[in-house]
Design a protein around this nucleic acid. Structure first.
Lengths: 248, 248
DNA sequence: GTCAGTATGTTGTATAGACCATATGGTATC
DNA sequence: GATACCATATGGTCTATACAACATACTGAC
C-alpha cells in the first residue's frame, strides 16, 4: 500500500499512518531519521497538509515520531518506547520475548461478584461474573498465576471456550467483538505464600510481583478485573511515564 | 480566567485547555458529565471549532475527557486515570498521598559513568556524571533508596545544591532549565539484601521493588538514570496501559 | 575570520467551511 | 404498542489558506 484512496471507508489519515508505520517496520526509516515534511507528505499523497499533520500528530502521541519546530519530524530514537505501555495479554507478552507460552486452567465458572470486583467492574455485588483461574507458563516453566473476573453481555459463553489453547484477550476481541482499549494496573512487591509457591514451583517466601488490573473496552467500559502473581525473578515490568496532566 | 486572549503569547487552545481543566478542578464538572459541544465552545470563547477541537483532542489524549460520536464529550469517569502515568519525583509522590516526605543524602559526587549508565544516558563510558545516593522517607519512615546518575551541561553545579530540602526534579526544571518530559521505567520484585534492609529498617529478605528509570527532557535527551529500591509493603505502583502501537 | 542580516524551509497556530457517521428523540404509520 | 422514518445535534474527516515561530545555511559587510 503506497497510495491513499479518497473513497475508502477508512479515513485518509489512518491510511497515511499505516503507510508511515510500514516504512518504519520495513527498515526504510531508522530511529533518529528525519522523515519528509508535512508539506512534502501532503503533496506526495495528494492530501491536505492538515490531514497529513493529523496522522503525524497521532504517531507523535504514540511515541513513534517526535517533532522539532523549524527542523522537522524524526523517528523516535529509543525503540523500546514503542513497545512500552502496550496492553498485552500473557500469551502475546511471552511470544514477544521469544518464549513458548502455555496455560493450565485451574478453574472456570460463573460466580457472584465480590465487592471489590463489583466496584472495579461497575456492577452490583452478586452479579454473576465469569471467574477464571489460570497458571501461566513460559517454556513449560510456571511464571504466573492469574485470577480474572469478567463481565459483559454473554460472558457465560466463555465457559464453552478452550482457554488453554487460545488467548483470552484474543477471544474477547475477535469472537465477542469487544475491542480492548486500555487498562489500569497496580503493582506491588510481595512474598510467595505456600500455595502460590507450590503452583509456581518456587520456595515459599520468594519474591513475587502482585498485580491488579482493570481492563476497559473501546467504549470505556470495564470488562475484566484480574489479580496476578508473577515470579519476581522471571518477570520485569516496563512503564512509560509522562509528565503533566490535570495538575501541573 | 474565563476569556481567551487573541493576542496572548500563549496559544488559544492552550488557554482553552487551562479553562477546561479549571472547570474540572473547581468541581463544576464531575466525572461522567457531558461538557459543551465543540461548536458551543467555539461560540462561547470566540474561536474556531477546529481550535476548540484541538484543545479537546489534547485533553482526550491526556485521559481527562473521552468522546462518543453522535453523543458528545464527557469527563472521564475514573479519577485515578488522571493521576496515572504521571512522571513524578519522590517528593511530589509522597506529598500527593498526604504524607511528609524527607530525604537523607547518603553520598553526592562526580564520578565516571559505568557502562550501563553510559548506555542509558547515551554518553561515552567514563564521562563524569553527578552521582547521588539518597534515602527517602515518608513520615520519617524509610521507604526507598534511590541511586541517581545525572548528566547535563553544568551538572557538576548540583554538588552545591541542598538536595535534602528541595526536590531534585524541581531543581533540574526550575534552576537549570531542563523541563522533564517522560521516563522509561522497569520494575521487578526482589528480596532485600542485608545493607538495604538495614537502611530501610526492615528484615533482610523482605519483599522489595527494584526500579530502574531513565528520564528524558523535552528535547528527548536522557538526563537521569536512577535505580531505586522500594519497601514492598509500603509502596504500590500504578500504570495505565494502552493497546495498539506500531504493531497491531 | 566574525558577525549580522537574510532567505528559505520547517513545524505551530488559527480560521471558515463543507460534508460524513452516529446517536437520540420525536413523529407518523401500521 | 411497536415500528419505521425523519430531524437534529454531536463528533469525525477533510480542504485550502494564512501567518507566526523557529532553525539553518548562506551572503555580505566589516
Amino acid at each position: 500500500m503506497s497510495t491513499i484512496y479518497r473513497k475508502s471507508p477508512v479515513p485518509r489519515y489512518h491510511q497515511l499512518k499505516e503507510i508511515l508505520r510500514e516504512r518504519i517496520r520495513s527498515g526504510e526509516w531508522q530511529p533518529g531519521d528525519l522523515i519528509p515534511s508535512e508539506r512534502e507528505l501532503s503533496e506526495t499523497y495528494h492530501i491536505s497538509r492538515m490531514t497529513a499533520r493529523q496522522a503525524l500528530t497521532d504517531l507523535v502521541n504514540e511515541g513513534i515520531f517526535y517533532r522539532e519546530q523549524g527542523r522537522g519530524t524524526f523517528v523516535t530514537r529509543h525503540k523500546i518506547t514503542q513497545q512500552l505501555m502496550r496492553l498485552t495479554g500473557f500469551t502475546e507478552d511471552i511470544s514477544a520475548r521469544g518464549q513458548q507460552p502455555s496455560t493450565k486452567v485451574l478453574s472456570a465458572e460463573m460466580r457472584p461478584a465480590d465487592d471489590l470486583t463489583a466496584t472495579r467492574l461497575r456492577i452490583e455485588p452478586g452479579t454473576p461474573v465469569f471467574s477464571l483461574q489460570r497458571l501461566r507458563l513460559a517454556d513449560a516453566e510456571p511464571l504466573a498465576i492469574e485470577s480474572s473476573q469478567l463481565h459483559f453481555k454473554g460472558c457465560e459463553r466463555l465457559l464453552q471456550e478452550n482457554l488453554e489453547e487460545q488467548s483470552l484477550y484474543h477471544v474477547i476481541e475477535a469472537k465477542y467483538g469487544f475491542p480492548l482499549m486500555e487498562a489500569e494496573q497496580e503493582l506491588e512487591a510481595g512474598l510467595a505464600g505456600e500455595e502460590e509457591a507450590k503452583l509456581l514451583a518456587i520456595p515459599a517466601g520468594s519474591a513475587v510481583l502482585f498485580t491488579r488490573r482493570t481492563t476497559y473496552t473501546e467504549r470505556n467500559e470495564p470488562i475484566e478485573y484480574a489479580k496476578s502473581i508473577y515470579c519476581g525473578a522471571k518477570y520485569t515490568f516496563y512503564a512509560h511515564l509522562r509528565r503533566d496532566q490535570l495538575f501541573a
